[in-house]
Amino acid sequence: MEWPLKRTVNTKNIRVLLPSIVVVAVLLIFGATLSGRFISVRNLGSILMTASLLVFATTAQNIVFLSGNNGIDLSIGAVMSMTALVGPMMPIGTPVEFAFATLTVIAMGAVCGLLNGLGIRVLSIPPLIMTLIMSNVIYGFTLFVTKGRPAMELSKILLGVNKTVFPMIRVLTICGVVAVAAAEIILRKTRAGRKLAIVGDNPNAAGLCGLRVSLISVAAYVCSGGIAGFAGFMLVGYAGSAIMRMADSYTLLSVAAAIIGGTSVAGGRGSFVGGALGSLVLILLTSILQMLNIPQGARFVIQGVLLAVILLTNTRSEKLRQ
């Protein structure tokens, strides 16, 4: 019998993604009717890039959701802002230096994730609280290191994420696609991925089976931090400069995108492809709102209502009365 079982593409998985695909189509059509510029190559390319940044954040968030135990990572935005500001402080002139800087930002994010994971597993601090406090500490650290100065004058290599490879597809977009594909394959086809989902599904049972639940849970936060670190580096390359708290909104959006994509916040069930589609939905929505010149306040309200609606259709507690 073939192992792992060939079931990555079966009806149940597709059915979860269907609503997101439909919504993406609807939003594209809606945007196009509002303005022909919306579906221009340039605009779509830019949307795809922003979506790719969100995809990184969502992938990180998905890993933490999958690990169960009410896992959530609210420090993703802070880590992204940190590496966006601190990353360019390193020399990135040559490809070697660039590679080294990339590894460093990933390591910075991973360390934050490790601290999160340890606080959560060893000290039993609820993930929401731990990651929220960490985000405060990370902001403080960032402020301390950068002395409040924004990042400017970036190296050409870093700005290279904006380079067009195909029409509509820039380097950053390709990175995003690769990240999602890699994550999904790891989840379904490797032992590490399967272990993560099993542990998230029922940590007690997983422990009884002999799995190292604490190690896997902490590893999930380390991965999340590392990915967020990388994403921040990509963010500054895309934007051309960085300021404090620029990645704040990514945190909430990553939560929303993951849930839209069918991930269970209780753990054990999730899809990175779904998260990518969810990210696309949210960025399309944001662009349409921006195009309509809707003030920031109204945008927040719409985002919040959307998230609330998604939550109430997806993650409700059990009825008291059966």
């Binding site: 959530i72 929401l128 909430l252 939560v255 849930i259 916040v265 927040f300 309200v301 985002q303 919040g304 209502v305 998230l307 609330a308 939550l311 109430l312 993650t315 409700r316 507690s317």
Partner: peptide, 13 residues
């Protein structure tokens, strides 16, 4: 609704 995520959403609203 889950209180954490729901109030997350309403805080945005």
């Amino acid at each position: 609704g889950s209180s954490l995520l729901t109030t997350f959403a309403t805080s945005t609203i």
